[in-house]
Design a protein around this nucleic acid. Structure first.
Length: 697
DNA sequence: GAGTTTGAAACT
DNA sequence: CAGTTTCAAACTC
C-alpha cells in the first residue's frame, strides 16, 4: 500500500530520524513512571476485573475463566509497543480535538462501577507514587485491550451473542472506525482506535455478553483494523493480517527495533486464537513462546487471573521504558497485596450482601489498603467486591478455621483474617481474655471499634481473635450469613476436605441441645458470639436477652481456665519462645494452644482440633499415631528448608506416607536420635504415650 | 436424616 | 491430676 504512513515507515526511512522528533517519541522518551497520566478512561480499566465473571454463554465459571485466559493470552501476543503510543495519542487528541468519543465509556463505567467523582479527583490531587503505580498498571491494560481483539476472536464461542446494547455499541464502533478510515492522520487514527478500543473495553466491562461481543466486534472489524493499520503501520503489510492490528499500534516498536523483534516474530508465528490451549483457557504455550510470558511468569503468584491479564498487558509495555518495568512490577506487588486484602474483604462483602456493600467499601477504603487516600484503590476494592459478589465461588479456602476452635490464628496459605467481618447479624460476647486486646471487644466496644482495630489486629501476631474468627467463620458464606438459605445439608461435599472447613463451619452454627449454648461445647459461645438464626440450638441462652447469664457463665469458665476463650490455634509469632518455631510461613508455624488428644482419628479428621485448625500437631499434643497432614507431632516443627535438608540426609521420601506430604518430620527417624532443629539443638520428642501427660501444657 | 464415632469439655 | 461423663461436632451409612 502506498499510504503516506507506509512510506513514512518504509525501511529506507530511518526510524530514528522520523520518530525521535515526533511527539509520540518524545512522549515515550520522557515517559516517567511517576508522571501522572491523566485521562479518565483508566477509571473503567478496573473493570476488566470483571473478566472474572464469565460471559453468559459459558455454562460454567471454569469455561469462562478459560475464555478469560484466552483474552489474556491474546493481549499477551499483541501487547507490545502500541500502548504508550495510543496512550499518548489519546491524550493529545483528547485535548486538541476534544472529541467526545472517550467520554461515554468512562462516564458510564464510572457510574456503573460506582466510582465516585472523588476517586478521579483524588487521583488528580495525589502524587503518591503508589497511586501512580496503580494508575500505570491500570492504564496500560485499558489501552491494550484492543490487542485482544485479534481476528482470532472469531473463534470465541460467544460470538453468537448480541444484545441491544451491544448493537448500539457496535454501530458506534463502526462509526469510529469509519471515521478513522477517512482520516489518514496517524494521530487521529490512533486516537480513534484508542477510543474504539476503549469502547470495546467499556462494552466488555459493561456486560459479560458485551464482553463476548467485544471479541467478536474486534474480529468483525478486522478489515477496518487492517485498513487502519495500513495507514499507520504499513510496514507490516504482507504479514499475516492478523498481525496488522499489532503493527498498527506498534510503530514505536520500530523505534525500538530490538524489542520489536522480540514480539513480532512470535506474533507472526502463532496466529492468535488458533491455539487450542488459548481457546480452552489453558496455559498457552504459544504465548509462552512469545517471550512475554517470562514477565508474566514472574508475577506474584497471588495475583488473580484477572490481574494477571492486566499485568500481562502491562508488562508488554515494559519494552518502552525500563522504568515502567519497575513501576509495573511494584504495581504487581502492590496489587498482589491489595488483591490479597481485597480477597479477604470479599468474604465480608459476599456475606453482607449488596446492601452492605457501600459501608464495607468505605471501611475498606480506610483500613484495608495500605495505599491510603487513593480513590483508585477504593474503586478497585469496590470492583472486587462486585466481582466477588457476582461470583459464587467459595470465599475462603482457609483450612481448618472452625468455630469450635474459637480463635484460630492460622494463616494457611498466607491468608490473614480480621475481625472486620463482625457480623451485623451476630453479636459478640465480650472476650475479656482475648490474647489481643485490640480484638477483645466488649459489647460496648463493638460498634465503634471493631473496624478501627483492624490495623492493630494485623500488626498483632495473632490475627484472629475469638470474635474475629467466629464472625468470619460464621459469615463467610453469604447464604449462611444472610440466613436466607442456611443449609445444613450436603456437608459431605466439604466435610472431607479441609480446604472447605472454613466454609463449612461458616455455614454451620451450633446445634446444642443440652448445653443451652453456655458451654464451650457450643461453638458460638466458645467463639464469643451470640447464637443467631442459623443456629439450631435448643433452649439457647446465648443471646443478648440473657447477656448477664452469658457473661456470668463466661466468667465461670474463665475462672476455671483463663485461656478458655483464648485462641486455640496461635501463630508461632505469638509463641516463638514457646514452641521454638522459627518459620512463620508454613502451616506448621501455627499450632494448637493445648494440643490434641486424638486416639483413633490419627489426627486426620476434624475431630482433631489441630487438623481442624489446619496446623500440625506439636509437642503439646498427646495424640496417638499422629498422621496430621499439617505436621505430625513427632515431626516436630521443621521449616521447609529444614525438611528439605532432612530429606537429603535421611531420604525421608522413602519413609514418608504419601498421603501426608506436608509432614515435615515423620516416622522412620531413629528414635534414639532426635532430630536437630535449625539451631543444632535436639528436637524434643513428643511424649509417646497418650494421656500420660495428663495436663495440657 | 438417623445413627455412630470421636474427642473436647465438663465433672467428680 | 486422673478418671469419667457429657456434649456436640464429625462422620458414616
Amino acid at each position: 500500500m502506498d499510504t503516506p504512513v507506509k512510506n513514512q515507515l518504509s525501511p529506507a526511512t530511518p526510524f530514528s530520524s522520523k520518530f525521535e522528533d515526533s511527539p509520540v517519541f518524545n512522549y515515550i522518551s520522557n515517559l516517567s513512571p511517576i508522571e501522572p497520566v491523566k485521562f479518565r478512561h483508566n477509571d473503567h480499566t478496573f473493570n476488566p476485573i470483571t473478566f472474572t465473571s464469565s460471559p453468559s454463554v459459558f455454562a460454567s465459571p471454569k469455561i469462562s475463566s478459560f475464555c478469560e485466559t484466552r483474552f489474556s493470552i491474546r493481549r499477551h501476543h499483541f501487547s507490545d509497543q502500541p500502548k504508550p503510543d495510543s496512550l499518548r495519542s489519546e491524550n493529545e487528541n483528547f485535548k486538541s480535538e476534544g472529541i467526545s468519543v472517550s467520554v461515554h465509556p468512562s462516564d458510564l463505567c464510572t457510574e456503573q462501577l460506582g466510582y465516585s467523582s472523588s476517586a478521579s479527583s483524588a487521583r488528580e490531587i495525589t502524587s503518591e507514587l503508589l497511586t501512580e503505580n496503580l494508575e500505570l498498571a491500570i492504564e496500560f491494560p485499558s489501552t491494550l485491550k484492543y490487542d485482544s481483539g485479534s481476528p482470532n476472536s472469531n473463534v470465541l464461542p460467544c460470538d453468537v451473542i448480541k444484545t441491544d446494547s451491544v448493537l448500539e455499541t457496535e454501530s458506534i464502533q463502526i462509526q469510529d472506525m469509519q471515521s478513522v478510515t477517512e482520516n489518514s492522520k496517524e494521530k487521529h487514527c490512533l486516537f480513534e482506535r484508542e477510543s474504539f478500543l476503549r469502547r470495546i473495553c467499556w462494552v466488555e466491562k459493561n456486560d459479560g455478553v458485551a464482553r463476548c461481543y467485544w471479541a467478536k466486534q474486534i474480529s468483525d472489524s478486522d478489515n477496518l483494523l487492517n485498513f487502519d493499520s495500513s495507514i499507520t503501520g504499513g510496514h507490516f503489510e504482507g504479514k499475516d493480517p492478523k498481525m496488522v492490528d499489532a503493527g498498527t499500534m506498534s510503530f514505536i516498536s520500530d523505534v525500538l527495533e530490538d524489542d520489536l523483534k522480540k514480539f513480532e516474530k512470535p506474533e507472526s508465528s502463532y496466529p492468535i486464537g488458533t491455539c487450542e490451549q488459548c481457546v480452552m483457557g489453558e496455559s498457552c504455550t504459544q504465548s509462552e513462546r512469545t517471550g512475554d510470558q517470562e514477565e508474566t511468569d514472574q508475577m506474584p503468584a497471588a495475583l488473580s487471573r484477572t490481574l494477571m491479564d492486566k499485568l500481562v498487558v502491562t508488562d508488554s509495555c515494559n519494552i518502552v521504558d525500563d522504568k515502567r518495568i519497575k513501576f509495573i512490577r511494584s504495581s504487581c506487588k502492590l496489587r498482589s497485596q491489595l488483591h490479597r486484602r481485597i480477597r479477604r474483604r470479599c468474604l465480608d462483602f459476599e456475606r453482607a450482601g449488596s446492601h452492605e456493600m457501600k459501608s464495607t467499601s468505605a471501611r475498606n477504603d480506610s483500613s484495608a489498603v495500605s495505599v491510603k487516600s487513593s480513590g483508585k484503590v477504593a474503586s478497585v476494592e469496590n470492583n472486587f467486591f462486585k466481582i466477588k459478589n457476582d461470583c459464587s465461588c467459595s470465599s475462603s479456602n482457609l483450612p481448618g478455621v472452625g468455630l469450635h476452635l474459637n480463635a484460630l490464628a492460622t494463616t494457611i496459605e498466607g491468608k490473614e483474617f480480621q475481625n472486620e467481618s463482625l457480623a451485623h447479624e451476630s453479636q459478640l460476647i465480650s472476650t475479656p481474655r482475648s490474647i489481643i486486646s485490640s480484638c477483645s471487644l466488649m459489647p460496648d466496644e463493638i460498634s465503634h471499634d471493631k473496624f478501627s482495630s483492624q490495623k492493630s489486629i494485623e500488626r498483632d501476631s495473632v490475627l484472629y481473635s475469638n470474635e474475629a474468627q467466629a464472625a468470619e467463620d460464621a459469615h463467610h458464606t453469604p447464604k449462611c450469613v444472610i440466613g436466607e438459605e442456611f443449609d445444613h445439608s450436603s456437608p459431605q461435599n466439604k466435610r472431607s476436605n479441609p480446604e472447605h472447613v472454613t466454609e463449612m463451619l461458616a455455614c454451620k452454627r451450633c446445634n446444642c441441645k443440652r448445653s443451652k449454648c453456655l458451654k464451650l461445647y457450643c461453638e458460638c459461645f466458645a467463639a464469643g458470639l451470640y447464637c443467631v438464626g442459623p443456629c439450631s440450638c435448643q433452649d439457647c441462652l446465648n443471646n443478648p436477652i440473657n447477656e448477664d447469664t452469658v457473661l456470668e457463665t463466661r466468667r465461670q469458665i474463665e475462672s476455671r481456665d483463663p485461656l478458655a476463650f483464648a485462641p486455640k490455634v496461635i501463630r508461632s509469632s505469638d509463641a516463638v519462645a514457646e514452641c521454638r518455631d522459627e518459620n512463620n510461613t508454613t502451616p506448621a508455624s501455627a499450632r494448637h494452644k493445648r494440643g490434641c488428644n486424638c486416639r483413633k482419628s490419627s489426627c486426620l479428621k476434624k475431630y482433631c482440633e489441630c487438623y481442624q485448625g489446619g496446623v500440625g500437631c506439636s509437642m503439646s499434643c498427646r495424640c496417638v499415631a499422629c498422621k496430621n497432614t499439617y505436621g505430625r507431632k513427632d515431626g516436630d516443627w521443621l521449616s521447609g528448608a529444614e525438611e528439605a535438608e532432612f530429606k537429603e540426609s535421611k531420604d525421608v521420601e522413602t519413609i514418608r506416607d504419601p498421603d501426608f506430604p506436608k509432614t515435615p518430620f515423620e516416622i522412620g527417624r531413629p528414635f534414639d536420635e532426635p532430630p536437630l532443629n535449625s539451631r543444632g539443638e535436639p528436637r524434643s520428642r513428643k511424649r509417646s504415650l497418650p494421656n500420660t501427660a495428663g495436663s495440657s501444657p
